[in-house]
């Protein structure tokens, strides 16, 4: 892996305004030496993908607590694929029941982090799996 810092887009997809988790994770990733772009609230899947491509990130971290994850997360992966950017790692975090996690992973979300996750687990996950992909 090169010494260039990892670039991560942290985004709030959908209409929910709960951004405590997204901001805490964004800060923790930044403190861990990553370059973090935070989108703010109310992003559509299309906006997320556009921003990710423009910012040339390796990782997208999506936070969602509204329960709309089954409708809003798969399109992000699908749009990336259409844009030939399927190599961007997509992570999700929020209130997501276990049975939905299985489905989300099937459609291409790399990992889903639920409440109680330590930010160091997220940082480690990104570091380990980006190395694998190199």
């Amino acid at each position: 892996m090169s010494n260039k810092p990892v670039r991560v887009l942290v985004g709030k997809v959908g209409l929910d305004g709960h951004d405590r988790g997204a901001k805490v994770v964004a800060k923790a990733l930044r403190d861990a030496g990553m370059e973090v772009i935070y989108t703010g609230l109310r992003q559509t899947p299309e906006q997320i993908v556009e921003a990710a491509l423009q910012e040339d990130v390796q990782v997208i971290g999506l936070s969602i607590l509204s329960g709309a994850h089954m409708q809003l997360l798969p399109p992000v992966v699908e749009l990336l694929r259409q844009q030939g950017a399927a190599d961007i790692m997509v992570l999700a975090g929020g209130i997501i029941p276990p049975e939905d996690i299985a489905y989300l992973k099937e459609v291409g979300i790399a990992e889903v982090f639920t409440p109680g996750t330590s930010t160091s687990d997220i940082i480690n996950y990104i570091r380990e799996h980006l190395e694998e992909n190199e």
Binding site: G14, L15, D16, R42, S66, G67, A68, H69, Q71, L72
Partner: peptide, 22 residues
């Protein structure tokens, strides 16, 4: 639900996936 709280009808494009959720 969030579309109601943000002033969108349930058939608005931004209401996708959010209707009746929270």
């Amino acid at each position: 639900d969030l579309p109601t709280q943000i002033g969108y009808d349930s058939d608005h494009p931004l209401a996708r996936g959010e209707v009746g959720k929270v």
